[in-house]
Every structure is written in structure tokens, then in C-alpha cells.
């Protein structure tokens, strides 16, 4: 079992070397002639006004919040699905109830208008 994760561990350590080597080689070979105009933020060809690190549209945040509910659901549903053969009819009722609670959450956000793009 631990051998399996050893493979992943070696992969995690090794994988950054590929993009690292490519970018490193690029850094060695490329010309390095920075100037002020070249280093400007690229927006439409005119000078950028202000920073980008400002308040952003809240809509994206709401979708992320709804996602969190379903992501947690996945954590519980995956083990149930994998062990489905061992479970009795009672478990089926439980799963149906569990998913229905989620459906209720989805219905609530839907009715709430949170899923409308404004």
C-alpha cells in the first residue's frame, strides 16, 4: 500500500523538474533586454490605469460557495458508491435522503436567484 504512494511521492518530486528545466533552458538561451515600455502591463496598447487588485464581481464568489456544498457531498458519496455492494436497502434510503437534502439546497439557491447571472 505504501509502495503505491511512494510512486506518487517520486512523481511529485520529479514532475516540477520538467517545466523547471524547460523554463531554465529558455532563461539561459533567451536575450535579456528589458526596458520600461516592454515591461508595461499589456492592456489594449495604452497605459494601464490603476492596479488590478481591486474589488471584483461577487457573482463568481457565489458560484464557488454553491460548489463547496457539492464538493463536500462528493467526499461522502464516493465511499458509499465504492462500498455499495456491502450495503443493505437501508443504506439506499439514506443515500436518497442525503442527495435530496442537496437537491433542496440547489432548489433554494435556484429560487433565491443566486444562480442568475446579473
Amino acid at each position: 500500500m505504501l509502495d503505491n504512494w511512494q510512486f506518487i511521492a517520486i512523481f511529485v518530486l520529479f514532475a516540477p523538474l520538467i517545466p523547471g528545466a524547460a523554463i531554465g533552458a529558455n532563461w539561459l538561451l533567451s536575450p535579456k533586454k528589458p526596458n520600461r515600455i516592454k515591461q508595461e502591463t499589456y492592456e489594449c496598447g495604452v497605459e494601464a490605469v490603476g492596479s488590478s487588485w481591486i474589488q471584483f464581481k461577487v457573482q463568481y464568489y457565489i458560484y464557488a460557495l454553491v460548489f463547496v456544498v457539492f464538493d463536500i457531498e462528493a467526499v461522502f458519496l464516493f465511499p458509499i458508491a465504492a462500498a455499495y455492494g456491502l450495503l443493505g436497502a437501508f443504506a439506499v434510503v439514506e443515500i436518497v435522503l442525503f442527495v435530496l437534502i442537496l437537491v433542496a439546497a440547489l432548489a433554494y439557491t435556484w429560487g433565491d436567484g443566486s444562480l442568475e447571472w446579473v
Binding site: I23, N26, L29, S30, R36, Q39, E40, T41, Y42, A48
Partner: peptide
Amino acid sequence: KLLSKELITPAG
């Protein structure tokens, strides 16, 4: 070609 391009890092 990409390997020989300058790695431009914008100022900000």
C-alpha cells in the same frame, strides 16, 4: 522558437 524568446516579466 519559444525556447529562444525573451522571458518578459511585467513590472507590476
